[in-house]
Amino acid sequence: MDDTVVCRALTKVYQEDSVAVHALRGIDLVVPRHDFLCLSGPSGSGKSTLLNLIGGLDSPSAGEVRVDGLKLAEMNRSELAQLRLHRLGFVFQSYNLIPVLSAIENVEFVLQLQGMSFTQRRRKARAILAEVDLQGLEHRRPGELSGGQQQRVAVARAIVSEPSLVLADEPTANLDSVTAENLMALLRHMNEEHGVTFIFSTHDKLVMDYSRRLIKLHDGEIAADERRT
């Protein structure tokens, strides 16, 4: 049980106007615990599709995904929702915070779904926001925060429930280089301090530079899988 993610012969075929589009072609992938992995490749190479399948947001055409040893194909919608709630965190390209909630309420949202009491979740959310350097901004709504600040709130939301795996889809795409570097340093810190496994999908060289493992996808297949120091 040392592997967070195991994919076997993972295949995804989309039907577009009766034409079969092979997004993934028999991917085999093992992601050990605490890994800091980056999926790269050109558009259409299958990065986002792979992230969606690992996150249980989509179902494969063939093959199998296991997260923390659990077979996703054997889970119903409700069980998948529970898996995402308790074991996974997501960071999206465009932050995707709930606009009517403040920063701290956005972070608390996941904890509230888990049924945590107000006092407990408020304490926890406050601590994690401090960790991502957002003290004093807890009660601002997303519209009152910069892009970098919003993405840090999104990171805080993704890790506050202490998931075993965080999936980040183009997390630096909308950030300037300084903010992006700060964010990656933060995520690396989270990986090292909290032992959270990260899988990124990106075009950004900065993210690739920060990763410890770089997988290059091409036409739905793994073209390269290299460990970095």
Partner: peptide
Amino acid sequence: TREFGIMLALGASPAR
């Protein structure tokens, strides 16, 4: 719809 999709991704059930 997008926001609901995010909520679903975060683990909210459709019932909630």
